[in-house]
């Protein structure tokens, strides 16, 4: 076996190993956006690395996303991590999921567009 060939094998092995390790470490944090109100899924669920995202995006306040509105005003010192979005953001006619889809999209995509960071196109989040 030539030296170069051996080196290639070693590099590949290391890469595979480190990938496994990194994935293992990250496992805790891997999550997908879920909401029980979505009955039929039109697109693959969105993979979302909560902590990493918040670190990168420098989000400290939970209620930046998990907000609570009271009488049209955002309650600054309250948050809603323990709730599903659909608990407040009801479906149109109680059936049409579009409005719920919309608020998810507005929450993620619009922020990405404004900040010019993060995915904005369908396939970037709803990865097959």
């Amino acid at each position: 076996m030539e030296k170069r060939t051996v080196m290639v094998y070693i590099v590949i092995t290391l890469l595979v190993f480190s990938f496994a390790v990194i994935s293992g470490f990250s496992q805790e944090d891997v999550s997908t956006i879920q909401d029980s109100a979505f009955k039929e899924k039109m697109r693959p669920p969105v993979r979302f690395l909560h902590d990493e995202h918040n670190e990168t995006a420098l989000i400290e306040e939970c209620n930046t996303c998990h907000h609570v509105y009271e009488e049209g005003e955002k309650a600054e010192d309250e948050s809603s991590e323990d709730m599903e979005c659909s608990e407040c953001h009801a479906l149109d006619d109680g059936k049409n999921p579009m409005s719920l889809v919309k608020i998810y999209h507005v929450r993620c995509k619009r922020c990405h567009q404004e900040k010019k960071a993060g995915p904005v196109m369908c396939g970037e989040c709803h990865v097959k």
């Binding site: 039109m42 409005s99 889809v101 619009r110």
Partner: peptide, 21 residues
Amino acid sequence: LFAHIILWKESWDISWWYISD
């Protein structure tokens, strides 16, 4: 198309019946 409708929903808050992907 579903993907178009969601865009309109986001932008102008209008939506209607859509076909499956």
